Computed example of a mutant assay.
Amino acid sequence: VDPPPLRLRGDPLGSLSFTSTAFLAQLMSDPMLREKKFLKSVLSILEERSHDRNSIVRQMAVRGLGNLVYGAPEKKHKKFLMVILIRALNDTPEVIGESMKALAKVLKELKEKDIGSSFRDLTQKIWTYFDNEDDALRSMAFVLFGILARLTKRKWKTYFADQVKQSWVTLLLHLQDPNPEVSMECRATFQLCFPFLGLKKLQSAINEHLGGTAELKPEELQVDICRHLVSELLNCLRLLTGVVV
């Protein structure tokens, strides 16, 4: 039995707004219906609905914007979408989840230079969801952080490296996340982010632990990392003091 349709009680205009927004969101998932001549109008409508007072309408609007990604041929459209979607990361969990899914689509269509100053806001916002109690939000946060790691080449490399240094312990801990899907996404992201830490001597060990499909043994990984960090600290002490430690 299909679930009953969502209704906005006591608000016929709100119900109409929801229905029309849901229709647009679904319509935009069909490539044949995303003709360029309609794109500007649809973008305008969905952007307006993303500010609606009702969270369900906002959720449908964000979903529609995500479905528009592949139908928006110009990078300026994708940048416009990204600004709206980043703002939606401050909304309700349902809207945030839709926004994260849509952002994953948008980012895969852009390069580092295309993101501009939004890179900073997006990176900072994403890693605040690493410890969120919602499994789906944690999982998507790791997915997005991994996508950013792939995108980062030159302009934002130093900045992203600083963000990784602030969050790598959290990433390490979530390799043992109680949710298997979250743990799997974190595993992929940790491997992508580790090179930004500059611990080249440890990279091969990380690849052995995280590469492939073998069962991850987080305790052994943590021991290897700690052993390496202690070794590096001792080497630094030797250089600074000129004595054998």
Rank of each mutant, 00 (worst) to 15 (best):
F196L: 13
T19F: 04
L110W: 07
A205W: 00
V245M: 10
L107Y: 08
C186W: 03
R138W: 02
E94F: 08
D224Q: 14
S29G: 06
E181F: 00
S50G: 05
E215I: 05
V223Q: 13
E109G: 04
L16Q: 13
P218E: 04
L8Q: 10
L122A: 05
L137Q: 05
E219G: 00
S41T: 12
A72K: 02
W127G: 02
K111H: 09
V245Y: 10
C186A: 13
R227H: 09
L43H: 15
L199M: 15
E220M: 10
D135P: 01
R238M: 08
A104L: 09
N235P: 00
E133C: 00
R49Q: 15
V57H: 08
T21C: 15
M100T: 00
T21N: 02
F130M: 13
F145K: 00
K113E: 15
G116Q: 07
E48K: 15
H51K: 15
C226H: 10
C236Y: 02
A188P: 00
E74Y: 11
F38A: 09
K155M: 10
F130Q: 07
C236L: 12
S139R: 14
L192F: 05
S55G: 03
L151Y: 06
V1G: 13
G198T: 13
T189H: 05
M100Q: 09
E185F: 04
R87I: 01
F80G: 03
G242P: 07
V42C: 11
S99Y: 04
L85Q: 11
L13G: 02
L8F: 10
P5N: 10
K125H: 05
L234V: 10
G211C: 02
L151M: 14
L68N: 05
N179K: 09
L103S: 08
E219I: 10
L81I: 02
E94L: 11
L237F: 08
L39D: 09
R227V: 07
N207S: 11
L229E: 11
T213Q: 12
T92I: 06
R7K: 12
R49Y: 02
L210K: 07
R187T: 03
D11E: 09
A61V: 02
R63W: 04
L85W: 08
L122I: 09
K105F: 06
P5M: 01
D224R: 11
H228W: 12
Y159F: 15
L8A: 08
V164D: 09
V83K: 14
I115T: 06
V169P: 00
E35H: 10
K217Q: 13
S118F: 14
V1S: 11
K75F: 01
F130D: 03
P218L: 03
L175P: 08
